[in-house]
């Protein structure tokens, strides 16, 4: 286990060093993503300023949810790049052979292959928004709340990472682009930035029981923020909900291993 983490670290360092060879482009892209995502955040703030609160959710509450999700989503984008470009750079070229020949975890080898550092801009934006929320909300951070927050963030990370793994897995069968899954990852992220209670029931149900997005984001955050939930969740269900993120991850991971067994390689 320790050796696996060390190997992951070393491979990551190599990927980062590779990116740093193009420092100008790197800084430019970081600034670019930061500005775009900041403009988006300001847009949301402007809407609240004009139309007021969403039920019990003030702009600071939404900022808390929004900031947290953006931090997690950006972290996944940065660290799951190896899966993101898996189909185009490993399957199409047959390069995946090389990974299967190594006596190490395939997941680690693929994950540490590339790092999308330019997404740091979005991460910065998330930190920025979350900081604003923390200052305005003055949450009473009891140990229980802190634990729930950490639990939720880690399961949110597992959830979004799992979607990247599923996307990569699909490329074992099809080389067509998989925009449909972006609806779930990017679309889901956009949707989860706001409280689930504002959406239609069927939509909420889909993102609770089929794709457990609400379980990793909305429900635990309601618990941390201690606001009433029109959907009727209790602190107990809110605290258990993030488990769904880990279950989802496990399911997606077994789908991945099923895909690896179906790998066809390319002619040499």
């Amino acid at each position: 286990m320790i050796a696996a983490i060390q190997l992951f670290g070393r491979l990551m360092m190599i990927a980062i060093r590779g990116q740093m060879q193009y420092r100008g482009a790197f800084l430019f892209m970081v600034a670019g993503t930061f500005v775009t995502s900041m403009v988006q955040a300001i847009g949301i703030w402007a809407l609240f300023d004009r139309f007021g609160n969403l039920g019990v959710w003030t702009v600071a509450h939404v900022a808390f949810l929004y900031g947290t999700i953006n931090i997690v989503f950006a972290s996944v984008d940065i660290t799951a790049r190896g899966f993101d470009t898996f189909g185009s750079s490993l399957i199409r070229t047959g390069q995946f052979d090389r990974f299967l020949l190594r006596p190490a975890s395939i997941v680690i080898l693929v994950a540490a292959r590339e790092v999308a550092l330019h997404k740091l801009g979005q991460l910065l934006q998330g930190i920025f928004v979350l900081t604003y929320a923390l200052i305005s909300l003055e949450i009473d951070w009891t140990l229980g709340r802190l634990a729930l927050y950490v639990f939720a963030v880690s399961s949110m990370y597992a959830f979004f990472y799992a979607i990247q793994i599923v996307r990569a897995t699909m490329s074992f069968w099809t080389i067509e682009s998989l925009e449909i899954l972006n609806t779930i990852s990017h679309g889901g992220m956009e949707a989860a930035q706001y409280p689930m209670s504002i959406y239609k029931e069927s939509f909420t149900n889909f993102f609770t029981y089929v794709i457990p997005l609400a379980c990793v984001a909305y429900f635990p955050m309601v618990g941390v923020l201690d606001v009433p939930d029109p959907l009727g969740s209790t602190l107990f269900t809110q605290s258990l909900a993030p488990l769904a993120g880990y279950v989802f991850f496990a399911v997606c991971l077994s789908f991945w291993f099923f895909g690896v067994k179906n790998y066809q390689s390319t002619g040499s």
Partner: peptide
């Protein structure tokens, strides 16, 4: 395993660093 048409090494790394990395991978 060696595939003559395709390298198993890290394209951007100096040869010796590829070797060092393989030492870690194969323990």
């Amino acid at each position: 395993v060696v595939f003559g048409q395709r390298t198993q090494l890290w394209w951007d790394l100096p040869v010796i660093e590829s070797f060092d990395l393989l030492r870690d991978i194969y323990r």
